[in-house]
Nucleic acid binder design. Structure first.
Length: 336
DNA sequence: CAATCGTGGAG
DNA sequence: TCTCCAAGATT
């Protein structure tokens, strides 16, 4: 705690104890770095300063403000939960109440509960997992339920009942700034003298890495079509597993040839041209549309335009108000 | 339990 | 350029 009081970063969500603000920050911080979250947090709270303003906004607008932050389900759930909170009256305080809200799991519930309401419950996030597993030399299967329980129990012993929120944040701060996954700064660590992994000279071996599946690589080309300052965008279907409901320019897979059956490739080849009306590519000869369905990394051909999503032409300043992915919002904003 | 959801920075 | 993975939740 002495180390934290001395070294803690001055972050916007550490300047408030408003449960709503803490909640927003915690959801944004899920799997997302502090530096990335900061500007989004400021913008979000400016636009939606309280539960009521968020609850009455449209999902579309909330998604637009969220554009570029990723994991868009979080924005939908935040919006949905705001409505639930407003109906319930008081802001939920306990782990149990908080976890009933969409988008709030064990970590976020403990974080809000301890930081905003002084409830002495430990959080278990990636940082705490790493710090504890190193300090206690817990090399077991961290992914298992039993492993999580052991870590949580250990984390709980670090909680200062007088300052639950700060002790949680201290552990996370340690993991984020010194006890990093790679190249940890052990010489500066306040608990170095008690660290089991350091004593063994095996800090970077903790926690045990889990075998990760190789990602599917896709080469995609986004085509920016401009006509009198306006840019062509189309809207992904709400049912899409990926970037559902978000706007984007026409996108085609550069690996389409590999996905095409040998037969189709022989007969139709790659003579596609952009169909501006539908934001897809139409084959020069067959008049078929090339629809890019990113689900499963597969490209499909469709013969109809019936299931095309909405399309439109937008001015650069209008794009800010649309729900888009980071690729679109950042690229189009910076390059017009 | 394991897969899935976006994006960006560090090493 | 490439790998790893971050203040996780959900199914």
């Amino acid at each position: 705690m002495r180390w934290y009081d001395r070294e803690r970063r001055d972050l916007p969500w550490r300047r408030t104890r408003d449960p709503y603000a803490i909640w927003v920050s915690e959801v944004m911080l899920q799997q997302t770095r502090v530096e990335t979250v900061e500007p989004y947090y400021r913008r979000f709270l400016e636009r939606y300063p309280d539960v009521s303003s968020l609850a009455t906004a449209s999902v579309e607008e909330v998604l637009a403000v969220w554009s570029g932050l990723g994991y868009y389900r979080r924005a939908r759930q935040l919006h949905k939960a705001a409505a639930q909170i407003q109906l319930g009256g008081d802001f939920p305080k306990t782990m149990e109440e908080l976890q009933k809200l969409p988008g709030i799991g064990p970590y976020t519930a403990a974080a809000i509960s301890s930081i905003a309401f002084d409830v002495p419950v430990a959080v278990l996030d990636g940082n705490v997992e790493r710090v504890i597993s190193r300090q206690q030399t817990l090399d077991g299967p961290l992914r298992s339920a039993a492993g999580k329980r052991a870590l949580l129990a250990a984390a709980q012993t670090w909680i200062d009942p007088k300052r639950p929120g700060d002790s949680n944040q201290a552990l996370m701060e340690l993991g984020a700034t010194l006890c990093s996954p790679r190249a940890p700064r052990c010489p500066s660590c306040p608990v170095a003298s008690t660290c089991g992994a350091l004593a063994r000279g095996q800090v970077e071996r903790f926690p045990q890495r889990d075998g990760r599946k190789a990602p599917v690589r896709m080469r995609l080309a986004a085509v920016v079509v401009k006509r009198r300052r306006r840019v062509l965008l189309f809207r992904r279907s709400e049912e899409s597993d990926l970037l559902a409901g978000l706007w984007e320019p026409p996108v085609v897979s550069l690996d389409a040839d590999e996905e095409m059956s040998a037969d189709l490739r022989r007969r139709y080849g790659g003579r596609w041209h952009l169909d501006e009306s539908y934001g897809a590519f139409r084959h020069a000869v067959t008049n078929k549309l090339l629809e890019v369905d990113v689900r499963g990394g597969r490209v499909r051909f469709t013969g109809t335009i019936a299931d095309r999503t909405e399309a439109g032409w937008f001015l650069p300043e209008e794009i800010d108000e649309l729900p888009t992915s980071g690729l679109v919002s950042k690229a189009l904003r910076s390059r017009g």
